[in-house]
């Protein structure tokens, strides 16, 4: 992947996450931090996709790094981590796969449906696992600082 492509991917991840951040009701002052969450997740995803070929693993690593970013920013700004966690994870959600799976279901195309179901399960499991490990590491700190 060329540098220009990576930079464009980062730029569009940033704008995409800011767009979702507005929909999630994140205040103006925190939108940039939320946008950066998307950039971090996207960069990790690009790197991991080329190193790890299993969707479960590369999604999990990207979600884990996104969650750690959300934890660190949440601690720094003393706000709930959910504010940065959702924007970090939103780019990983396999909406296209879910849609294709249901379309295959509507058209009674069972092999295609099963194929997409497996990919969907891998991606969702990866995101869920990645986003659960981060908060475990910082739980006691957050309790101490009431965030």
């Amino acid at each position: 992947m060329a540098i220009t492509e990576i930079l464009l991917a980062c730029l569009f991840s940033f704008t995409c996450t800011i767009g979702f951040g507005i929909c999630f009701g994140i205040r103006k002052e925190e939108l940039v931090w939320a946008g950066l969450a998307g950039v971090v997740t996207r960069i990790v995803l690009i790197i991991c996709e080329s190193l790890l070929f299993n969707r479960l693993f590369y999604t999990m690593v990207a979600a884990l790094v996104g969650t750690l970013y959300a934890e660190l920013v949440g601690m720094h700004k003393k706000v709930s981590i959910a504010k940065f966690l959702y924007p970090a994870l939103v780019l990983l959600i396999p909406g296209d796969v879910l849609y294709e799976m249901i379309m295959a279901m509507i058209q009674l195309d069972q092999p295609a449906m099963m194929h997409h179901l497996v990919i969907l399960a891998q991606a969702l499991l990866g995101i869920a696992l990645g986003s659960m490990i981060g908060p475990m590491l910082f739980r006691s700190y957050r309790r101490e600082h009431r965030i």
């Binding site: 464009l8 991917a9 569009f12 991840s13 704008t15 995409c16 996450t17 800011i18 767009g19 979702f20 951040g21 507005i22 929909c23 009701g25 994140i26 205040r27 103006k28 296209d96």
Partner: peptide, 23 residues
């Protein structure tokens, strides 16, 4: 929510326009 409804709609449009680049 801190933003009016038209702004939320614009937010989603921005997000999808960015996704449009990836796809």
């Amino acid at each position: 929510p801190p933003y009016p409804r038209p702004m939320i709609i614009c937010g989603m449009a921005i997000a999808l326009l960015s996704l449009n680049y990836f796809i």
